[in-house]
Simulated scan of single mutants.
Amino acid sequence: MWFIFAIITAIAWGAANLFYKKGSNVEEKYTHLKIVIMVGFVMGIHATAYMLIKDITFDPFDMVRYFPVSFMYILSMTIGYIGLRYIELSIAAPVQNSAGAVSAILLFIFFPREMSMIDIAGIIIVTIGVITLAVYEKQAETYALKRQNEMIDPKYQLSFLAITFPILYALIDGIGTFLDGVYLDELTLIPEDNALIAYEYTFFIVAVLAFIYVRFIKKEKYSLFKEKDRGTAAILETTGQFFYVFAIAGNAIIAAPLIAAHGIFSVILSRIFLKEVLSTRQYVMIGVVMFGIILLGLSEGLAE
Rank of each mutant, 00 (worst) to 15 (best):
T142V: 14
G181D: 02
Y156W: 14
K146N: 11
A162Q: 13
F165L: 00
A140H: 15
I152T: 07
T164K: 01
A144F: 13
E141K: 14
E186W: 05
L161K: 09
P154N: 11
I163E: 00
T164V: 00
A144E: 15
F165A: 04
L171R: 04
G174Q: 04
Y199R: 09
E150M: 10
Y143L: 12
I172F: 10
I175N: 06
I167N: 01
G176N: 09
P191A: 08
F165Y: 13
L196C: 01
D173N: 07
R147F: 11
L187P: 01
A162L: 10
M151C: 12
I197Q: 10
E200Q: 12
Q157R: 14
A207S: 08
Q139C: 13
F178R: 02
A162W: 08
N149V: 09
E150Q: 12
V182N: 11
G174Y: 02
A170K: 05
T188F: 02
L145C: 09
I205R: 15
I163D: 08
D180H: 14
A144M: 09
L158V: 09
I152A: 04
D153Y: 04
A140T: 11
M151G: 13
F178I: 08
Q139W: 14
D153I: 01
L184H: 14
F160I: 00
Y169C: 05
E192L: 03
I205V: 15
I172Q: 03
F178L: 01
L184P: 13
P191T: 00
D180P: 04
G176E: 03
S159R: 02
I172H: 09
D193W: 06
D193Q: 08
F204C: 04
L184C: 10
P191H: 00
T177G: 02
I167H: 01
A162I: 01
L145A: 11
G176S: 03
D185I: 04
D153Q: 09
A198C: 01
T188I: 02
V182W: 11
F178E: 00
I172S: 08
R147D: 12
Y201I: 10
V182P: 12
L171N: 02
I175T: 08
Y201M: 10
D173H: 01
L158R: 08
R147P: 14
D185V: 00
Q157G: 06
F203K: 12
I175S: 12
P154H: 04
S159E: 06
E141V: 13
K146E: 15
D193C: 05
Y156F: 15
E200F: 06
E200M: 03
Q148R: 15
E150D: 03
E186N: 00
N194M: 06
D173T: 05
V206R: 12
A162N: 14
G174K: 03
S159H: 07
L184K: 13
A170C: 10
